[in-house]
């Protein structure tokens, strides 16, 4: 009896330790953002919103935040469509070498992202296209599509093909079968991939580093540049805002498009 209790306590303690380890940096960011002193101080000396004021008043930060949201939104849509289509092709297309194709699709995850950024930068230079917004979105897609492919393949793997046959048998054309049966059933995997894509794009640093044009930088790049010369609570405030924004988008996607909108068999 006692040993069970001790085991249970140890188990809970280990869980809490991991949780604290994961969340502590975020807690420190919050303390940093709310502390009136321009440096990290512990214990905090007070609570103030002055760094948030400074962040929201800065046109540089605001345009960076908007650009980041724009790029993340475009990337999420493009990566979700591309990744889900690729996964469907791999799983259903009966294509030769689908294993090799899967490996290639997932390879950007294995390459250091900074190399991906550098390679893209050189490609754009060679193509002489400058540093357009779409170039940045393409770069972000490169590192986010693998997430969508992975999560979509996972749900397709467990998909019962007889459901599609049943729909066909009842008179649904292949297109209707896809939109009425396949898509709703693989949606949880696709949405999960889309959420990954949004988060990875929104706080993407290494790929963006080479692809943003001066004066038109995403939030992570702007924060990095700011950090090089100033270190004050604005960084903390910006971090808090981006954490909350990301959380908001995830919750919003979950609520509107729905991750739990179907009951599992």
């Amino acid at each position: 009896m006692l040993s069970i209790k001790i085991g249970r306590f140890a188990y809970l303690a280990a869980n809490w330790a991991v949780l604290i380890f994961l969340l502590l940096p975020i807690a420190i960011i919050f303390v940093f953002a709310l502390n009136p002193t321009p440096y990290i101080e512990f214990p905090p000396v007070g609570v103030s919103l002055k760094w948030f004021d400074k962040f929201f008043a800065s046109s540089q930060f605001m345009s960076a935040l908007l650009l980041s949201l724009e790029v993340a939104a475009l990337t999420t849509v493009a990566a979700t469509v591309l990744g889900a289509s690729a996964a469907l092709g791999i799983a259903r297309g009966n294509v030769p070498g689908s294993r090799a194709i899967t490996a290639i699709m997932l390879s950007p995850l294995m390459l250091p992202a900074i190399l991906t950024g550098l390679a893209l930068f050189q490609t754009y230079v060679l193509m002489d296209v400058g540093r357009p917004l779409w170039g940045l979105v393409v770069g972000h897609c490169l590192v986010t599509v693998p997430y969508v492919v992975r999560t979509t393949l996972a749900v397709l793997h467990n998909f019962d093909l007889r459901l599609e046959e049943a729909a066909r048998n009842l008179g649904a054309s292949p297109q209707r079968t896809f939109f009425e049966i396949t898509l709703p059933l693989i949606k949880p995997g696709v949405i999960a991939g889309g959420i990954f894509a949004f988060i990875v794009s929104f706080d993407q640093f290494p790929v963006s580093l080479f692809l943003v044009s001066p004066g038109q930088e995403t939030l992570p790049i702007t924060l990095f540049n700011y950090l090089k010369y100033d270190l004050d609570g604005t960084i903390g405030a910006a971090s808090v805002v981006s954490i909350l924004l990301a959380a908001l988008v995830v919750i919003g996607l979950d609520r509107t498009v729905g991750l739990r909108s179907y009951v599992k068999l």
Partner: peptide, 13 residues
């Protein structure tokens, strides 16, 4: 044609 499948293949959603 109507068809009844081995594991019914009802649409779970």
């Amino acid at each position: 044609m109507g068809m009844v499948f081995q594991n019914y293949a009802l649409f779970p959603h």
